[in-house]
């Protein structure tokens, strides 16, 4: 698809004939100015966004200032307000709760970075390899998309069975290949971190692949032809043409992948249920355990607000830095 001006730019609708009929003039004055139409069309979306996201968020922020445990569940509006006490407990590094929260934050950061980089790497590899058409390319593309299309529970629960120490496929495979003695734990202990990274990358790399395939299609072939005529090899072409032209796609892709993996609840919950090993204690499930398991929803809300603030900061900084670097607006 060539990058060109808007296809309809050349065809401006002809100006409407000036009304001569008084009745028609009256009708036109009463009909809505086109200015209001976009707002009206957007109105249902805004209303739902408010109802589903914004208002619950505000309720959550309010909840974080309450001491909300089982005594007040029934009438949570009557729970005693404790101001910033929940936040103080959450960030108190000397206390068990604060210490665990910081550790969980670091684990989540490491997990998100590893997951995003690996997903992007595999997505890029797949997109570049499948750039030129070949026989069976459609089939390969479909195969690649399967992990992303699978219902998440089905996919992750299968991994859970595979990662079992005694009966799982992963250990059998590693043992038969002679790489390990077949007795490694993948679901408890330190290896649990690698398990969640692998499962997360397995699920997400097809999305990166899709986005990059679409991005690559917008690069005109003539550029590559011209480059190879000038003597640029594959790697030079990639570095100097593909990457810069993919910059707008990469900008959005990294941000979206990071936010998704940072907030990931499904993968650790399905793999570990309620006994999450400390090495795989992602923030979202850590907060869940701290509210639903200890019935302290005020504290859980405070932690959620802190998570929200962190992600807002990251997103803003990311966008500002990239705007200053002069990345082209898509």
């Amino acid at each position: 698809m060539p990058v060109s001006a808007h296809p309809r730019a050349k065809t401006v609708p002809p100006a409407s004939p000036s009304p001569t009929d008084p009745e028609e003039r009256g009708r036109r004055r009463r009909s809505l100015s086109p200015r209001y139409l976009p707002y009206l069309l957007v109105l249902p979306a805004v209303v739902f966004e408010l109802l589903v996201h914004i208002i619950p968020m505000i309720a959550g922020v309010y909840m974080s200032t309450l001491q909300l445990n089982q005594f007040f569940l029934r009438n949570w509006l009557e729970a005693p307000g404790v101001g910033l006490a929940n936040y103080r407990v959450a960030v108190d590094l000397d206390g068990a709760v604060g210490d665990a929260l910081v550790r969980s934050f670091l684990v989540t950061l490491a997990f998100a970075l590893a997951s995003v980089v690996l997903s992007w790497f595999f997505g890029m590899l797949g997109a570049v390899l499948l750039q030129r058409p070949f026989r069976g390319r459609g089939l390969v593309r479909t195969l690649f998309l399967i992990p992303y299309a699978l219902p998440i529970y089905a996919g992750v629960i299968t991994w859970k069975f595979m990662l079992e120490r005694d009966t799982g496929m992963v250990n059998s495979l590693l043992e038969s290949l002679g790489l390990t003695d077949g007795n490694t734990f993948w679901l408890i202990g330190d290896n649990a971190f690698y398990s969640i990274v692998v499962v997360s990358v397995w699920r997400l790399w097809p999305f990166a692949f899709l986005a990059l395939v679409a991005g690559l299609q917008s690069i005109p072939d003539q550029i590559y032809e011209a480059a190879s005529v000038d003597g640029a090899g594959q790697w030079k072409q990639f570095r100097h043409f593909t990457m810069p032209m993919l910059a707008p796609v990469n900008l959005v892709l990294f941000l979206v992948l990071f936010l998704w993996t940072f907030n990931d609840f499904n993968v650790p919950y399905i793999l570990f249920s309620q006994s999450v090993p400390p090495s795989a204690d992602l923030l979202s499930i850590h907060i869940y355990n701290n509210s639903f398991i200890t019935w302290n929803f005020g504290l859980g809300s405070a932690m959620s607000v802190l998570l929200l603030l962190f992600l807002l900061v990251v997103t803003s900084v990311y966008l500002v830095v990239n705007r200053r670097r002069g990345a082209v607006d898509a």
């Binding site: 665990a100 701290n290 005020g298």
Partner: peptide
């Protein structure tokens, strides 16, 4: 157990 006790204390 110390950590668990602190978590319990934070539970209000």
């Amino acid at each position: 157990m110390e950590n668990a006790q602190q978590q319990m204390g934070a539970g209000g």
